[in-house]
Design a protein around this nucleic acid. Structure first.
Length: 221
DNA sequence: ATCCGGATCGCCT
DNA sequence: GGCGATCCGGATG
């Protein structure tokens, strides 16, 4: 039997695009409630869809891990845009990451989408992610899901209701199925509990934040 | 003009 | 668990 296959037999609800008012709320709330929603990307190659199963909140200029902490620059223009915009940025010389802008225009906060559970266009995702060995490696990370879905900087600043990227209402995840932990891969504000993921979903990037032991002893000399 | 670190990933030991 | 790839933004001189 197909033990490892995505649960395609189960039908996910794919509703209308989420309204701008959905995003115009505290970023942590938006991050939590985006779990279960459906991210959709349309390109010349086709349409891909995935249920959002992992997010992180970046709350604004006062959050040292948020790009808004550097102020309004060319790069962060759309991060400071109106709620419901896509903020797509380039990282580590080779990957894209996608965010949903939250709160009112000028605030500078967003939700990073860290993992999705594919429900449509899976063959296209596999074609774009030849490197991935296991099925979960298709979309279990922010750089991976952008590669799988064809999300690039060309989509930076587009509306998440109209553009090539759309986030649609899905099946809300009950609180008792949501796990909250510190964010992954950051050094500033590394202990703030702003990461949210769906308990037991196989596409979550990691069950826990990098547990790289305890702090080293910087006073060894 | 130059330097450094980064919201990552995949391969190595 | 560690490290290199590979490029951009922001800070510094």
């Amino acid at each position: 039997m197909t033990r490892n296959a995505a649960p395609t037999a189960r039908r996910f609800r794919v509703g209308p695009p989420l309204p701008a008012t959905f995003y115009d709320r505290p970023t942590e709330i938006v991050a939590k409630e985006l779990l279960g929603a459906v991210l959709q990307c349309t390109t010349a190659e086709g349409v891909t869809q995935g249920v959002i199963v992992e997010t992180e909140a970046y709350t604004g200029p006062e959050d040292p891990a948020c790009h808004a902490a550097a102020g309004l620059t060319a790069r962060t223009t759309h991060l400071f845009g109106p709620p419901g915009l896509a903020y797509v940025y380039f990282i580590y010389g080779m990957y894209w990451c996608v965010n949903a802008v939250t709160r009112e225009r000028g605030h500078g906060s967003a939700v990073l989408i860290r993992a999705v559970h594919p429900i449509a266009g899976v063959d296209l995702m596999r074609a774009r992610r030849v490197r991935s060995k296991r099925e979960v490696d298709l979309t279990n990370g922010p750089g991976k899901l952008c590669q799988a879905m064809g999300i690039t900087g060309a989509m930076n600043g587009t509306s998440l209701r109209n553009g090539p990227l759309v986030i649609r209402a899905g099946t809300p995840v009950p609180d008792n199925n949501v796990v909250v932990t510190p964010r992954i891969g950051i050094t500033k504000a590394a202990d703030w509990p702003l990461r949210f993921f769906v308990k037991d979903d196989p596409y979550v990037s990691r069950a826990r934040p990098a547990s790289s032991g305890n702090a080293k002893d910087p006073l060894s000399s």
